[in-house]
Design a protein around this nucleic acid. Structure first.
Length: 201
DNA sequence: AGCACGATTAACT
DNA sequence: GTTAATCGTGCTC
């Protein structure tokens, strides 16, 4: 069952910004009742350390941020705006708080399940936001802290297509309107154009 | 104990 | 472009 190209812990143990960039084109998979749901990662953001005032770890080690301080390759799933779940993957060495937010995927597997969960939205809106993709893939607090690198994980990432720099746009992270500079504008958001991914698919 | 706000989304003017 | 929805978290009193 475990695919040969699943991303291992050493992939996530590296610099957060590098991991965010390199996750573009990788395949996010959610196993549910033996069925694969998921698709190609198109957009990510890096959140790196207590000094990054846009990162939840700015508050230090709390019950909520605990997982970010743990070993890389685990899911940091948090609840916000009273209704939305967000999926992050912990990066860097054990003890350093950092993670990559998965903001958008191209839905390829389990489209019927996804369609039902995202109804009545049209396909291009199914997974083009961090809370949207969590709803589409059935990800919530139950997956918080899960190890994406264990053999039987319900969530994991596989190597996918290689996205050239020409197909990647770096920009400021979204939704940090009350965060001071330079964190508010630092270009730690990465987007792959859908054509860059489709071209290789 | 109370409060302001949030790594958003969907619906509406 | 604007706004309601809706509640956990972290900070102040």
């Amino acid at each position: 069952m475990p695919p040969g190209n699943r991303l291992l812990r050493n992939f996530f143990a590296r610099d957060t910004v590098l991991v965010a960039r390199e996750l573009l084109g990788a395949n996010l998979v959610r196993m549910e009742s033996g069925q694969r749901l998921g698709g190609v990662i198109l957009e990510t953001e890096a959140y790196h350390g207590e000094a990054d005032l846009g990162c939840h770890a700015r508050a230090g080690r709390t019950p909520r941020t605990q997982v970010m301080y743990g070993p890389p390759g685990h899911a940091y799933v948090y609840f916000t705006y009273g209704m939305h779940w967000m999926l992050n993957i912990v990066t860097q060495a054990d003890g350093f708080p950092a993670a990559v937010l998965i903001r958008a995927i191209l839905p390829l597997e389990g489209r019927e399940v996804i369609a039902a969960r995202r109804s009545p939205q049209p396909p291009h809106c199914w997974t083009d936001g961090p809370a949207k993709l969590c709803k589409a893939l059935g990800i919530d607090g139950n997956q918080h802290g899960m190890d994406l690198c264990s053999a039987d994980s319900e969530i994991f990432v596989e190597g996918g297509v290689s996205v050239a720099d020409a197909g990647v746009q770096a920009s400021a992270r979204v939704g940090l309107n009350n965060v001071p500079e330079p964190w508010r504008s630092i270009p730690w958001r990465f987007r792959a154009s859908e054509s860059a991914v489709m071209g290789v698919l």
